[in-house]
Computed example of a mutant assay.
Amino acid sequence: MLEDGAAGTRNGSLDVYACSDGLQKVASAVSADSSILDVRFVRPGLLASAHSTGKVCFWRATGGAAPALELVHTTPVADPDVLALSVTFAPGHMAVTLSSGVVRVYAMEAVPGPATAVAEHAHELEAWTAAFAPAGSAERVLSGGDDGVLLAHAVATDTPLWRTGRAQHGAGVTAILPLADNVLWTGSYDEQLRVWTGAGRPVLAQSLGLGGGVWRLVPDGRGRVLACCMHGGARILAGPPTEPAVVATIVDGHESMVYGGDWAADGALVATCSFYDRKLNVWRVVY
């Protein structure tokens, strides 16, 4: 949220809901000095949040009769006037993308704990998203920016590997999902899901229109992927990684851009959230 004022201030909160019988907020941790642009589960019970004041915060979530959130560590990743737009993790590493276009990789012996910058590269405009590849490895980091470019960077040597041309995405690259067997998916503001194949520099295999800007691609670990499609709602994709198909569409329940979502641990429920209307919806998956 951006508050009115001469300078303008952002604020946000990290909330915990129980959804066994409807939705009920059970815990909230307010971050008064900044908004939260991204949230990731590092492992069960530990979350990381990317903030508009150039930092990543780590929170311990406890359940039971008295659910609570506890701030356990804060890692500065940029100057306070730079937004941390996304955060992602691989064993021993964290990658953060920034509104300045910079993508920075940190080595971490323990999470949460001290972080040492070990690799860095930059886009010409905002760096929206990053992912480590291969999945579960910190061998290289892939990033997408508002400049419409997909970049690959070697972490160990801190050197560039390859980049796509601007013509290969019709707008900013906003989502990246590495899959098995040298398959890579990307999402863009241009409403296309792109499937890339091949070792090394990938080759575009196909595009699939999803009816909205593809902001997030979230796998469930069972072969299905939730696509958050901004003004187009959300989609659930399934099928072979090289030939995905839409198997379910979520268009009702949101009056604004769907920017976030995730799966329940058992894959039976999916949650989606939208921007201006501040809605969180939980859906039962029947596919």
Rank of each mutant, 00 (worst) to 15 (best):
R43T: 07
G223I: 11
F89E: 00
Q24E: 07
G211K: 11
A122K: 14
S86G: 04
V218M: 10
D266E: 04
G267C: 00
A122C: 15
D181S: 09
A245V: 14
R10D: 13
D15T: 13
L71A: 12
V30P: 06
V270G: 06
A138C: 00
E139D: 12
H169K: 00
S99E: 01
D277S: 04
G136L: 07
V77G: 10
S207V: 03
P44I: 00
L98W: 03
G113M: 09
Q168F: 05
V72G: 04
V111M: 10
A122F: 08
L151V: 14
L193S: 03
R43A: 06
G113S: 12
A156T: 02
L217H: 08
L23K: 01
G63D: 04
E120V: 00
V258R: 08
A84I: 04
A32V: 07
Q24Y: 00
C19F: 15
S100E: 04
A110Y: 03
D33K: 14
G45W: 03
V286G: 14
F132M: 01
A90Y: 00
P244D: 09
G172H: 15
K25Q: 06
A95D: 02
Y189A: 12
D147M: 07
A138W: 00
T53V: 14
V214C: 04
G261E: 08
R235M: 03
A119G: 07
Y276L: 04
N281A: 09
A29P: 04
A6D: 12
L125G: 01
D190A: 02
A110D: 10
R284G: 07
S28R: 10
D252T: 10
V149T: 13
M94Y: 11
G165T: 09
S31I: 08
D277K: 04
A6L: 15
A248I: 11
V56R: 06
V155W: 02
H153C: 06
L46A: 02
V105Y: 01
L210M: 03
A65L: 10
A199W: 13
L204V: 08
P134N: 05
E126I: 05
A227F: 07
V42S: 02
A95T: 08
L125T: 06
M1V: 15
D181G: 05
L46I: 01
L161K: 09
S100A: 09
D252N: 07
Q24T: 05
S20G: 13
L69C: 09
F275Q: 15
C229G: 01
V16R: 01
L14G: 05
A245W: 13
A265F: 00
D146Q: 12
T9G: 14
A66C: 13
T97Y: 06
A48D: 04
K279W: 05
M230L: 13
V246A: 12
A248T: 12
R235G: 01
G211D: 13
V246P: 06
T186G: 04
C228F: 06
D158V: 02
R194N: 08
S31K: 02
L71T: 07
Q206F: 09
D158N: 07
A66Y: 08
Q206D: 14
L142K: 02
Y17L: 09
P219C: 00
